[in-house]
Design a binder for these strands. Structure first.
Lengths: 111, 111
DNA sequence: TCCGATACATCGAATATCTATGTATATCCG
DNA sequence: CGGATATACATAGATATTCGATGTATCGGA
């Protein structure tokens, strides 16, 4: 799939996933992969920097947690600011879809 | 509007617009701006390099034409290869929309 | 006559994502 | 018991796209 189109959807989807419940990085990647039947295959090199950036912007908040197995996980939850950003980004996404689809439809001949 | 989301849609929309008829750069920008009620506002600095890149990839073919006013325009038309790319990119776009919307819907609670 | 619209172009900057690589532990299988 | 795989995080460098600024030139209207 044309990876260029994916740009910008990463932060939107992370925020959306975290609106369900607090999750850690690896879990986020697995969830989006499952939810979209593999349409999204985020690499760690994309995901973790994105999480750090969202945390720096205070849209999400992370907290270390020890599992019983001694492995550390960093759980992220959505902040109030993040929830607002999610609303905004969702609206922008909807508008983008409408705009693009309008152009494609006009090109294909008005229904 | 969050400009990050726009990435990758530029070439898709250019190809789509040119599938209607041959157009020149300025006209492409004006058309997409009108068709989307201003949702897309491409700068010349984005559009012209994109056109050059598509031409280099032989997805579109350009030809200089003189207007009666002495101004030169470069008309671009879709090549066969470009038409194939358009089909491909349109499918990728549809899949992206489906995938993103699926995640958003699951987050908002299954209808 | 001057300004804005038309019409093209290029360069550098900003930004996001990918690839590759690294660390460490737990678990499964032979 | 040893090795491969999955879990779980992280960073650094490369790549690519788009934006902003700037430049050239012509034409029409105020």
């Amino acid at each position: 799939m044309d990876t260029e189109l994916l740009k910008g959807t990463l932060s939107l989807l992370i925020l959306s996933l975290l609106s369900r419940k607090a999750m850690y990085g690896y879990q986020i990647a697995a969830t989006v992969h499952a939810d979209t039947d593999g349409a999204f295959q985020w690499r760690e090199g994309s995901l973790y920097p994105a999480l750090h950036k969202l945390e720096q912007a205070k849209l999400i908040a992370g907290e270390w947690e020890d599992t019983d197995a001694g492995r550390k996980r960093r759980y992220y939850r959505l902040t109030a600011k993040g929830r607002a950003a999610l609303t905004e980004k969702t609206a922008a996404w909807a508008e983008l879809c409408r705009a693009v689809n309008r152009v494609l439809e006009v090109s294909n001949g008005p229904a």
